[in-house]
Every structure is written in C-alpha cells, then in structure tokens.
C-alpha cells in the first residue's frame, strides 16, 4: 500500500510563495513571446491577450529583412565566443600564477588586479575608445574582442578556486618532474572545470548583452552586434514592439543554450569534486 504523501500547511505556503516567484520571473518571458507574434494593435490592448488570436509567425522572418539581423547575430556569436574562449585562457593562466606559483610581490600584484575590479567601466570607456581608435580598430572584430580578452573578475574567481586544489597534488607532480605547463594543463584545468564553466557562463552572458562598447566602436551596420541591431527598432517616436520582441526571442536563444550546456558541466563538476578529494 502506497503511503499517501502528506503535506503540511507550511509546505503549501512555501509552494505558493515559490509559485508566485516563478510567475513573476516568467511573466516578462511570456509577454516577450506572445508579443512577438501579435499584430501591433493587440500589443497594449487591455485586458492583455495572453493567447494571441491570429499569431503572426512571419515576424520572425521579417526581423531578418527589416534589419541586418542575420549578420548581427553572426557578429555577436563570433565576438562573444571569441571573448569567452580568450577569457578562459587568459584568466586561467593568470589565476594559475597567482594561486600556484611563488614569486616576489605576488600578493601586491594581486591586490592591484583586485583594485581594477573596483573601477567602473564608464570611467575607462573614453580612454579605451581612444586607444582602439588610435590603433585604427573602429569597426573591426579585434576592436570588439581584444579589450575584453582579460577580466580581473575572472582571474579572481579562478584563483580562489585553484587555491582549493590540494597543494600536495601539485607538489607531488613537481617531484615527478612535471613542468608548470603540464600541471596547468593536466591537473589544474581538469580540476577547475566547475569554475571554468561558471566563468564561461558569466563571460558569455555579459558579453552577449554588452551594449555600450559595441555601440561606440561600431559605426557600420555590417559590424553591429545583435543588441545594437535590435535597438534600431526602437525609434524616437515609434517602436515596432512585435518585431522587437521577435528579435529578442531569437537573441535569447544562445544565452539559453549556453546556460543549459554550461550548467550541466557546472553541476557535474561540483558533484565530481564531492566524491574525490580523499
């Protein structure tokens, strides 16, 4: 005989509170998706129609012809992908040095790196722009990618994680004649997988959504990223909401994909760690 599951009143309170949270979080998504297929006149109708009477699926095609969406999407994938890979490489190398190497001034140098975290990006915007302009990198991929190849946040994140890797492991490898290069590649990086996955997610999401830098350093439509291209749909007087939302739905997909993929690696890495160690 199956035992009937019993829920206390408290469980129900928690359940309803969580459900409310889910609804609040998902409502903008639902609105985005339903608006994407609405005719313009239905967008602000009251009471709002959640299920669209005559869905206009061709908004998803129209967004490719009204603005250069395909090109912008490819630009974004290229720029964000390159930045994510570069950050993983550069930050993990820097973090390895800060966590596993002994050298004079290491802590001071790390503090200076941390200080860079405190400088708001608005302050460095104009100097960065000047550098990129003087290099002749306006409207180029290197101008979009290289300023973000390094991240002090990423270095900090990885260093903290690498520090938790048992020192005995590294010392043992040293005794066995392992070079720093091999330790970094074959011991630290595999063990650091959860932190690397977390950094990849952070880097991808923040760069995919980056607006200010690509706005300032691109002037040609063919170099614009997806966020810039989408914002051209928002005019001074008029906004084509269905088209904007159709584009936004498409623009959300890569972030969603990276999150789902990265999240798996993130969690598997965590559980792997919990069984190892001893």
């Amino acid at each position: 005989m199956a035992r009937p599951t019993r829920h206390s009143a408290w469980d129900w309170v928690i359940f309803i509170a969580l459900l409310a949270g889910v609804i609040i979080t998902c409502a903008p998504f639902a609105w985005m998706i339903s608006t994407a297929i609405k005719p313009n006149a239905e967008v602000f109708r009251f009471p709002p129609t959640l299920w669209v009477e005559a869905p206009l699926w061709d908004n998803f095609l129209r967004v490719f012809t009204v603005i250069p969406f395909g090109r912008a999407f490819a630009n974004s994938l290229m720029v964000t992908g390159a930045i994510t890979i570069l950050q993983l490489i550069v930050c993990s190398m820097a973090a390895y040095a800060f966590a596993c190497l002994q050298f004079r001034g290491r802590e001071v140098l790390f503090l200076i790196y941390l200080a860079a975290l405190m400088v708001p990006s608005q302050v460095t915007l104009i100097p960065n722009f000047l550098v990129v302009r003087n290099l002749g990198w306006i409207d180029t991929y290197q101008g979009l990618i290289l300023p973000f190849a390094f991240s002090s946040f990423g270095t900090f994140l990885l260093r903290q994680y690498f520090k938790t890797i048992p020192r005995e492991l590294i010392e043992a490898s040293r005794l066995d004649g392992c070079s720093h290069w091999r330790i970094y590649l074959f011991i630290v990086l595999p063990l650091g997988k959860p932190a690397l996955a977390a950094l990849a997610i952070f880097a991808f999401v923040s760069q995919w959504n980056n607006f200010l830098w690509p706005l300032i350093t691109t002037t040609k439509p063919e170099m614009q990223t997806v966020q810039i291209a989408l914002s051209t749909l928002q005019g001074q007087f008029n906004t084509d909401w269905p088209l904007l939302m159709a584009g936004s739905v498409l623009a959300t997909m890569p972030v969603l994909a990276v999150f789902i993929l990265g999240n798996k690696a993130f969690i598997s890495g965590l559980t792997a760690g919990s069984f190892g160690g001893k």
Binding site: F211, L215, T219, K220, P221, I228, S231, T232, L233, Q234, G235, Q236
Partner: peptide, 10 residues
C-alpha cells in the same frame, strides 16, 4: 560619404 547610423537610444 561615410555613413554612421545609430539607434535613437544610443
């Protein structure tokens, strides 16, 4: 003429 277009918002 080198055209630089930007959205109103930016």
């Amino acid at each position: 003429i080198e055209v630089q277009h930007a959205p109103w918002s930016g």
